[in-house]
């Protein structure tokens, strides 16, 4: 399955989000409920059945940074808004379809993978949103991770006290996050010959689960 996906996407230099999601699911990494389609009827049907606010994301081999071109529309809570958003996204450059995905709430993290020249696949974890850019509160470990590695990389973050629950705020499901990190590290090892870097950003963690709300897999240049 993975080889087919890589074959399909290698000319783009990165793996389109619906395919990236397939790879992640293969490693038991959870994605919020979603549908990938180019037909508005399918989108509406999914939305009605879900009965919960969604986000629409453009899927185009020509658009790596979706937000920069207005390719992500959040907080869609009526059929009307869904239709507008869907049609707007379907006009973007090179579009092949749209992902309609359940909006999930929780604490935002970034989980990343880098194919390091000296050490091979490494896992990065840190505070999401502006946390990563402003505070640089991140930790790094060499893949594959064991439970101890994953625990220590979380404990190292200043952000850890917030993950655990801070001043009455409920913490996130740390066990699930550890599982996600370990599964992700296995995926990096399997993709060692193909990937340059991977961003799971944001990963949204709540008291019961961790969801990857966006995934970007950049392939090595020579593949």
């Amino acid at each position: 399955m993975i080889n087919e996906i890589i074959e399909k996407c290698k000319s783009y230099g990165w793996i389109l989000e619906p395919y990236a999601n397939e790879i992640l699911k293969n490693y038991n990494i959870e994605i919020p409920e979603y549908i990938f389609t180019d037909k508005i009827e399918n989108a509406i049907q999914f939305f009605k059945k879900l009965n919960s606010p969604v986000v629409c994301k453009v899927v185009s081999p020509k658009i790596l940074h979706k937000s920069d071109v207005g390719g992500v529309i959040v907080g869609i809570d009526t059929e009307e808004k869904l239709k507008d958003s869907f049609l707007k996204l379907m006009k973007l450059n090179g579009v092949i379809g749209v992902i309609i995905e359940k909006m999930v709430k929780g604490t935002e993290l970034i989980i990343g993978g880098k194919n390091d020249f000296q050490f091979g696949p490494v896992v990065i974890c840190g505070m999401g949103g502006i946390g990563v850019e402003v505070y640089n509160d991140t930790s790094i470990r060499m893949a594959p991770l064991n439970v101890k590695d994953a625990e220590s990389m979380l404990k190292q973050l200043k952000f850890y006290s917030i993950l655990k629950g801070f001043r009455g705020q409920k913490g996130i499901n740390i066990k699930k996050l550890i599982e996600t990190l370990i599964n992700f590290s296995k995926m990096l090892m399997d993709l060692e010959d193909y990937f340059e870097s991977i961003d799971l950003n944001p990963v949204i963690c709540s008291t019961d689960n961790c969801y990857v709300a966006d995934a970007r897999i950049i392939l090595l240049k020579n593949n």
Partner: peptide, 22 residues
């Protein structure tokens, strides 16, 4: 760089944290 991850994980930070890990 084309990803967040690549910009966070500079060579030295990777080196230093992996030494500690091991």
């Amino acid at each position: 760089v084309s990803s967040h991850t690549a910009s966070i994980a500079g060579d030295y930070k990777v080196f230093s944290e992996i030494l500690k890990q091991k």
